[in-house]
Structures are given as structure tokens and as C-alpha cells.
Design a protein around this nucleic acid. Structure first.
Lengths: 215, 215
DNA sequence: TAGGTTCCCTAACGATCGTTCATTTGAGTA
DNA sequence: TACTCAAATGAACGATCGTTAGGGAACCTA
């Protein structure tokens, strides 16, 4: 019977690169809250307000979304921390600046940080190795600063590797609990971590006060 | 040779509670390596050398396996740490003993530890709340020791809550990197963490040396 | 205004998921 | 030797998974 012209609704919203941004935002949110494997492409699509197939216009597959998210996070984190380090000359102050920036960036991007280091397992062999290599380089940077601080007498550590692990774990962990609506500002949290880190490395109290911004 | 009543192999191995242990072991291993959602009941069954359906004789469902694993870990961890604390009287020494035991237990059960705190998201509302409550109680115990240490003058911290988070994160993280085949024994790693923790809480050098077992 | 390209849709594919069903095996008991 | 019940099996359920095929609307260029 004559199928009415009916105009059946504009159906397709054309948003271009906006769509990709929506997919990325949905991925960060859902991967962080539910986990990578617990997030389906359909759930992702729904959160980005597109149909599942549309995601494949922007990404070759699910894993590529995760890889991009993690790579972007690591690249930006590294760039920021290196820049902060470069503004200082003495090793202990370099370390303090790096800790501060690390904590700050993790507090500003808690979801991305969480996904980046909790979903390494979800990656296939190649991408996993690549990400781990970047993380190892990043860690080595911190280990280097500690060693230099020991060399110039401003820091002390019984085992540099263990100290490096411990320091990065506690600073990275800020992404797990920090809440901007909580009692402490990110600035305060970062300063507190500088204090804790330098304290555990037996820095002189005067140096700690200076580096934590209370000097 | 003859002998061969041969009977085409007993098809169905009847192993009783051994089966449950095999399922539990497979679950720890696979949940830790691949993740809860990335581990299928079929993969679990294969690792335990049973058919998938057999698992349902011992557990009502997949989530129950995870819940049991996590509950057992938290219960045993708490019991051990409380026992270690109870052997000390001064707050700073209580804390040192707790840190030592916490690190030790995490190093001895890296997979269980990892699954327990990385798969909280995988739990349904009820079990998740229950586990988080236990974890919060556990954390509060550490916060309490730090507060007492501050009260008696042996410790110092600008913010007790942040210090508690930081300390537990670095000690729990031992489960992520510790390798018994590595250069350090678990005893050494635990002692190093006692040192780092007390250092970050500005304990007196003499106290640190004593508590870390170098006194 | 015609043609090509970009972007997104609907629909469906085969695979795999957690789980259940009905049955069989084996050990213990009378 | 028969009965009973725990412990496991093989097969299948419906749901959901990641992904793809094919078509059509919106935009750009000429």
C-alpha cells in the first residue's frame, strides 16, 4: 500500500571527528569503570551515541582503542615529567619535580592512568611489549635520578630498584583514590608525596621542605 | 605387558575435593594472568582437567570462585598481620611488624594478592561492597598505628590518610614485581620496605635500623 | 548539478560466553 | 549383590560477543 514518503527521521547524525572523540571518551570511562573485557563494543557505541559499526570507521578494532588510549597517556605523561625535570638542576630537586608532576598528571587523569596500567594484560603480545618497554624506560628515568642523588650525597637508599618501584607505585596509586571533591587539592596531594618520597630516601629535612614547596 | 584389561581408561576421574583445589588453583593462575573476564569457564575447566559442567558441582557460578579467592586472601592476610602487630607494643614497632608481614604475605602469594585488588570491579554490587569494607577496615588499622606513632612522638606525617594510602600502595605493589628467582629474598624486600615506610614517616634513624632488623 | 567521498546506518555473521540438562560412573553401605 | 548418592560427563541452551557486508544520507569539489 503506497508506502508513505514518511521521511523516517534524519536517521544519520553526521558528526565527523567529534564521533571519534565521543568514542574515546566513552572508552576511557567504561574501560576504567567496568574494565576492558567487560566493556562490549555495543556498550561503547551506546555511550558514544553511535551504532557499533560506526566505531570501525575510526578504529580497526577494539584493541586499537585501548592501545591509543594507553599510548597517548604514556606519551603525554613522559613529556610533562621530562619538562618538569628539566627545570631543575640538582638530582634531588629533579626527582621532586618529577614526583610532583607525576602525581599531578595522575590526579588530573585518573581514569586514563588507571586504564593504562591495569589493562596491560588485555593487550596482545606486540602492543603489550611495546607498552611495557615505555613503562620500563619511564621507571629507569626515576631510578637514574635516585642514583644521581645518592652520588651527590643528597639522597640515600639501601636498594635503588626497590626504592624506585615503591615510589612509583605510591605515586601512581594516587589515580586510585584521588577525588577532586575530597578534602585535599591536587597541589596538596602532590606536595605530600614529594615529602613522603624524599623522606623515604633520607633527604635532609631542609631539602624536603624546600622541594615540597614549604621552603 | 599383557595384563591389559586395559578398559579404555577410566574416562571419569573421581577426585572429590581434589577437584575443587584444582579449580581454585586454575582460577588463581588464570585470573591473575589473563584477568577474570578474559578467563572463560571452559579455560578454567581445561586447566583443572575437568569438564566445564563439573565446576558447577563445586561453585554456583563463576563469580563465586572469585569471591572465595578474594575472601580467603583478605582473611588470611588480616589474621597474619594482626598477629604480627600483637607481638609488638610500641606503635612504630607495631607498624614495622605489620608492614613486614604485609609485604611478606604479598610476596608469598603474588597471584592471589593481584587478583584480590585488581578484580574488585568484576564483582557484583553486594560482594564488591563487602570486599571494599574489609579493605577499608584493613587500611584503617594502618592509619590507626600511624596516628598512635605520631601521638607518642616516634612518627611524623603531614597527612595521615595520604600517608596510609601511599604506604599500603607501595607495599601491596610488591605483588606486582617480586620474583623469588630475583636478586633479593622476600626477607630483604620486606626489610627494605620497613625502612622506606619508617623513613617517609620521619622516624628516628636508630628506630628504623632496629625495626628493619639491622639493629 | 553531477560525481565521489566521508560517515554512519541496519542487519547479520560465526564464534564463544556462562550455564543447564539428563545421564553415567564409581565408591560406600547394607 | 543391590541400593544410594556424590562427582563427573557430553551435549546443548539462549545470549552476547567482536566484527563485517552493504546501502544510503550528507558533504565536498567541479
Amino acid at each position: 500500500m503506497v508506502e508513505a514518503p514518511e521521511r523516517r527521521r534524519p536517521a544519520a547524525l553526521r558528526r565527523g571527528p567529534e564521533t571519534r572523540a565521543a568514542i574515546d571518551a566513552a572508552a576511557v570511562e567504561l574501560f576504567a569503570r567496568r574494565g576492558y573485557h567487560a566493556t562490549s563494543m555495543r556498550a561503547l557505541a551506546a555511550a558514544a551515541k553511535v551504532q557499533p559499526a560506526a566505531i570501525y570507521h575510526w578504529y580497526p578494532g577494539k584493541e586499537a582503542i585501548l592501545i591509543r588510549l594507553q599510548d597517548d597517556f604514556m606519551a603525554e605523561l613522559t613529556e610533562r615529567v621530562v619538562a618538569a625535570m628539566d627545570e631543575q638542576d640538582r638530582p634531588a630537586l629533579k626527582l621532586a619535580a618529577a614526583v610532583r608532576e607525576h602525581v599531578f598528571y595522575h590526579g588530573e587523569h585518573t581514569s586514563e592512568a588507571f586504564v593504562t596500567d591495569s589493562e596491560i594484560r588485555a593487550l596482545g603480545e606486540g602492543p603489550r611489549r611495546a607498552l611495557i618497554a615505555k613503562r620500563d624506560d619511564y621507571q629507569a628515568m626515576f631510578g637514574g635520578m635516585i642514583r644521581e642523588g645518592i652520588a651527590d650525597g643528597s639522597l640515600r637508599a639501601s636498594d635503588v630498584d626497590v626504592a624506585t618501584y615503591a615510589i612509583l607505585l605510591q605515586c601512581t596509586g594516587v589515580a586510585l583514590w584521588f577525588d577532586p571533591a575530597g578534602p585535599l587539592s591536587l597541589d596538596e596531594v602532590a606536595a605530600l608525596h614529594v615529602e613522603l618520597v624524599l623522606g623515604s630516601l633520607a633527604a635532609a629535612p631542609g631539602l624536603i621542605a624546600t622541594a615540597a614547596g614549604r621552603g
